[in-house]
């Protein structure tokens, strides 16, 4: 009977192990053509910030959406909102506003057309026909959008090219953070009797003058024996400008925005009746807006 060739098997296994160790540990393939989805978390944040800044400049939502898809977030809107909150805590209100604005526009859509940059100065130039074609973003692979402004350039003039009549009108997209000098108005105060909500829940929603919800707004609530502060935007799933507080029973509360606003007073949790006849304490919903 022939002996089993153990020496060959051992040599093969040793070679295989050595090859795998070299390929996986000592010298793994160097990756040079990676995609944004495999970037480290902080670099993905940086990417999102730049996408939001770019969107604030161009208003090109399809392009921003396509760029965000490259990051591979399961829910890009939630990722933007969460990053907006982190950005607020780091004190970058402008960056947070850009992120929140992009999240809001992705969520609700925007009818505003992309802004087309074709206003540029050329020396020794003279314009002839100017054509502007806005092509929707094709795919992540084709990232460079076909946003074609084609000033034809000839000789000796300084020229600002003029958009053709169907050129979309540039629009302001950024919302400056609220300032001390812009007091908020209490535009609605509703009693809420909803057995599905926690009892004595005070809900506050804060809008800016263009009805965009504002995160990071400090709200001051006071009652007979004390007071507390809370902030909008800590529950982005309920809205960037949303905040809530559980009131004390049989206690009168007053609420105002720290930056300056009307004061909502005499907020005592109201008695409500459930469909089954039981009574419970309801809450309020206050809506503030910058004029």
């Amino acid at each position: 009977m022939k002996r089993f060739p153990w020496s060959f098997l051992l040599a093969l296994l040793a070679g295989l192990g050595l090859g795998l160790a070299y390929a996986w540990m000592i010298s793994p393939l160097r990756l040079t053509d990676s995609e944004p989805s495999v970037l480290r978390v902080d670099f993905k944040d940086q990417f999102r910030s730049v996408i939001a800044a770019s969107y604030a400049a161009t208003g090109n939502l399809p392009r921003a959406e396509a760029r965000l898809s490259l990051l591979g977030d399961p829910d890009p809107i939630e990722a933007l909102n969460a990053q907006a909150q982190r950005t607020i805590s780091s004190g970058d209100f402008e960056g947070a506003d850009q992120l929140a604005a992009l999240a809001a526009d992705l969520e609700h859509g925007t009818n505003q057309p992309p802004q087309v940059f074709i206003t540029s100065t050329f020396e020794d130039a003279k314009p002839l026909n100017v054509e502007v074609t806005v092509t929707p973003f094709p795919s992540p692979e084709g990232i460079p959008l076909q946003l074609t402004g084609m000033p034809e350039i000839f000789e000796t003039q300084i020229v600002e090219t003029q958009p053709v009549p169907n050129t979309p009108t540039p629009r302001p997209t950024r919302t400056p953070p609220p300032t001390q000098g812009a007091p908020f108005r209490l535009i609605a105060q509703d009693t809420v009797c909803d057995p599905n909500l926690p009892e004595r829940l005070l809900q506050v929603i804060v809008f800016n003058s263009s009805r965009r919800q504002l995160p990071g707004i400090r709200i001051v609530i006071t009652w007979d024996s004390g007071g507390e502060e809370f902030f909008t935007g800590l529950k982005p799933e309920l809205g960037n400008g949303y905040a809530d507080f559980v009131m004390f029973p049989d206690t009168s509360h007053a609420v105002q925005i720290a930056l300056g606003s009307d004061i909502a007073t005499d907020l005592v949790p109201p008695a409500c009746r459930a469909p089954n006849g039981e009574t419970y304490l309801g809450g309020y919903k206050l809506t503030f807006q910058q004029p």
């Binding site: 040599a11 040793a14 795998l20």
Partner: peptide
């Protein structure tokens, strides 16, 4: 055989 094993390991890895 040893060299074949190394080659197979590298190809797999």
């Amino acid at each position: 055989t040893f060299l074949i094993g190394i080659g197979a390991g590298l190809a797999y890895g």
